[in-house]
């Protein structure tokens, strides 16, 4: 039983981190109709900056700087590169493929710098653990759940209560009508990308923290697991992204936890379990769990 609780808590922590990434995907998709394949590399860049800077600036300083840098980078990519191709749906398709090219560029450069190293991010939790009744949890996992909850709540508040959030929702609903009402599409879009970039740097911290060994060149690929999470939820729905992330996180943790009982499926099935879940969901609901509106956009 404790084993089960352990796995569930691990799954929740993992889901909370995926939610940060998946929410980024959804925000960018809502604002621009583009699925950003370079998001994993942006996340890796955030982690790399923290790893390099934390000796000089301390963890908090490095984190702040990394969040600002990735936000600026994502915003600039959108504003100065992708937006050249225009705003309509056809253009969004092209921009999606262009982000694959951007991903190759950023990843090649970072992979060259990181090489085979394992970088420590110098986070304050280290390998400390906390006893919660019968289960033992790593502090970093608890921190992941707490921080993600706060940040995600803040993002939802942004959507709901700020003028920018209103503009974003209007633009996602109908680009032309929003433009006619005076929504500055370019700015709204670029800001959405900034937000997503910042979230990615934050997610990098928890993806590299204990019990993970540290930041490696493949950390960005782990972020790809947030793809199924975003798709599951329906890509245009922030709530769906949350639900999808928790589902994916729990699945992955449970499959890894009970690997010995599931050896029919082969070693390391936990790595690919999110994709299996996604295929099953797409078979039943081709537009995701919450994605009735999202379908009209694509």
């Amino acid at each position: 039983m404790t084993g089960f609780l352990d796995n569930v808590l691990n799954g929740l922590a993992l889901g909370a981190v995926y939610a940060l990434v998946a929410l980024g995907f959804v925000v960018m998709f809502k604002a621009s109709g583009v699925l950003n394949f370079a998001h994993g590399s942006v996340l890796l860049l955030g982690g790399y900056l923290i790893a390099v800077l934390h000796d000089d600036l301390g963890f908090a300083g490095a984190l702040a700087l990394a969040v600002l840098s990735t936000a600026a980078l994502a915003g600039a990519l959108d504003r100065f590169l992708l937006q050249r191709a225009g705003q309509d749906e056809q253009a969004a398709h092209i921009q999606t493929i262009a982000t694959i090219g951007i991903d190759i560029l950023i990843f090649t450069d970072l992979a060259r710098r990181i090489g085979g190293d394992l970088l420590s991010l110098g986070d304050p939790w280290g390998d400390a653990v906390t006893e919660l009744g019968p289960v033992t949890v790593a502090d970093s996992r608890l921190a992941a759940i707490a921080v993600s909850t706060v940040v995600i709540a803040a993002v939802f508040a942004l959507f709901r209560f700020t003028p920018w959030g209103l503009s974003l929702r209007a633009a996602a609903e109908d680009l032309e009508a929003a433009a006619l009402m005076g929504v500055r599409l370019r700015r709204v879009r670029a800001l959405a990308w900034c937000l997503a970039g910042g979230l990615a740097a934050l997610a990098a911290v928890f993806l590299a923290a204990f019990p993970a060994p540290g930041l490696e060149r493949t950390t960005g690929q782990i972020a790809l697991h947030a793809f199924p999470a975003a798709i599951l939820g329906g890509l245009a729905s922030p709530v769906g992204a949350l639900a999808g992330s928790l589902l994916i996180g729990l699945t992955e943790a449970l499959v890894v936890g009970y690997e010995s009982d599931l050896h029919v499926l082969g070693d390391g099935f936990g790595e690919v379990a999110p994709y299996a879940v996604m295929l099953l969901v797409l078979l039943v609901r081709p537009t995701g769990l919450f994605g009735a509106k999202g379908a009209a956009r694509v």
Binding site: L35, P228, L235, Y275, A276, T287, V298
Partner: peptide, 15 residues
């Protein structure tokens, strides 16, 4: 369709 299929096929590669 479209982008959704891109991610769905991503699953094929990993599986």
């Amino acid at each position: 369709k479209g982008i959704y299929l891109g991610i769905a096929t991503l699953a094929l590669v990993f599986l």
